[in-house]
């Protein structure tokens, strides 16, 4: 299936409705799928707040406390970002710190990129007062975008680098925002395409091989990219390169990335002086 096929099937409807239809065709009734999405949304609502009220630290001790710190700053009115982007940044930090601290999260598409979709969707829904049913449909639409990326490229950092994880999450989030705010399916795909284009080639280089540095902050960056891409799409700006072509490029770029930059902790930030020192702190001296 391609975005082109989806646009034909979703004509006059929405990506979320099409995603539910496809699930129904595969044997999951609409009501069951919505109930499942609802229980996931409940987990998302908890994870985006969890690390805001009190500092939460990761099990390795390398990261934590930043969602709390940023939220205090945001509430004092210091943020440079508008209400929605600042709230999304807080939410993304909270979800990612919760993940690193062995808290409960929804992988979407992965655990390392779990902050981007809930942060964007819940920040927009809260500020704009979007009803829950519409949020669930937006999540379903985001899932469909993820399915297309999975089919034609990859969602795994070990295969495609961070563009496959945070890049895909931002594309899913951009599509979900467009859908929630009433944009047409074409616009959702333009938003998703623009989000991927802004993260094309992003490497996966986790310090000490852990889902913390730089993953947590890349979730924040992912929200900023998703929100700007969705905003452009809602304004009628189109991606000059269509979504299907962008995903095809993403696949080629991912395959061209050396193994050292695909989740092996063998390059990038992982092998900087500071990165290696943190690795030693966690695991002790090796070799």
């Amino acid at each position: 299936m391609t975005a082109k096929d989806c646009l034909e099937k979703a004509a006059g409807s929405s990506l979320g409705e099409l995603a539910l239809q496809l699930e129904e065709d595969a044997g999951t009734p609409r009501e069951d799928a919505l109930r499942k999405l609802d229980s996931m949304l409940t987990v998302m609502e908890a994870e985006v707040e969890h690390a805001c009220h009190l500092p939460v630290y990761s099990i390795s001790g390398l990261t934590g406390g930043d969602a709390y710190r940023y939220d205090q700053y945001r509430k004092e009115g210091g943020s440079l970002l508008g209400e929605i982007p600042a709230l999304a940044a807080t939410y993304a930090l909270s979800a990612s710190e919760t993940n690193a601290a062995m808290g409960r999260i929804v992988a979407c598409p992965t655990a390392g990129s779990c902050g981007i979709l809930p942060a964007c969707v819940l920040a927009v829904a809260k500020v704009r007062g979007i009803p829950r049913e519409k949020v669930l449909l937006a999540l379903a639409g985001a899932g469909l975008i993820g399915e297309l990326i999975d089919e034609h490229a990859s969602l795994a950092g070990a295969q495609g680098g961070c563009q496959a994880e945070c890049g895909s999450a931002a594309a899913m989030a951009a599509g979900a925002i467009v859908e929630m705010l009433g944009g047409k399916p074409e616009m959702a795909f333009h938003g998703a395409a623009m989000a991927i284009k802004n993260q094309l080639g992003l490497v996966c280089d986790p310090v000490a091989g852990l889902v913390e540095i730089p993953c947590i902050k890349r979730n924040v960056g992912g929200t900023a990219i998703a929100l700007s891409a969705a905003d452009l799409a809602l304004a009628g700006v189109e991606s000059r390169i269509p979504f299907d072509d962008v995903v095809e490029a993403m696949d080629r770029v991912g395959k061209a990335l050396p193994a050292a930059l695909r989740e092996t902790a063998g390059g990038g930030l992982a092998t900087t002086k500071a990165g290696l020192a943190m690795k030693e702190k966690v695991y002790g001296k090796t070799e």
Partner: peptide, 20 residues
């Protein structure tokens, strides 16, 4: 892959392969 392979699973972090 279906919708719930992309959105989900609900899990305890930090890693789907190393934890869940």
């Amino acid at each position: 892959m279906g919708l719930f392979d992309i959105i989900g699973p609900v899990m305890i972090g930090p890693s789907s392969s190393h934890t869940a």
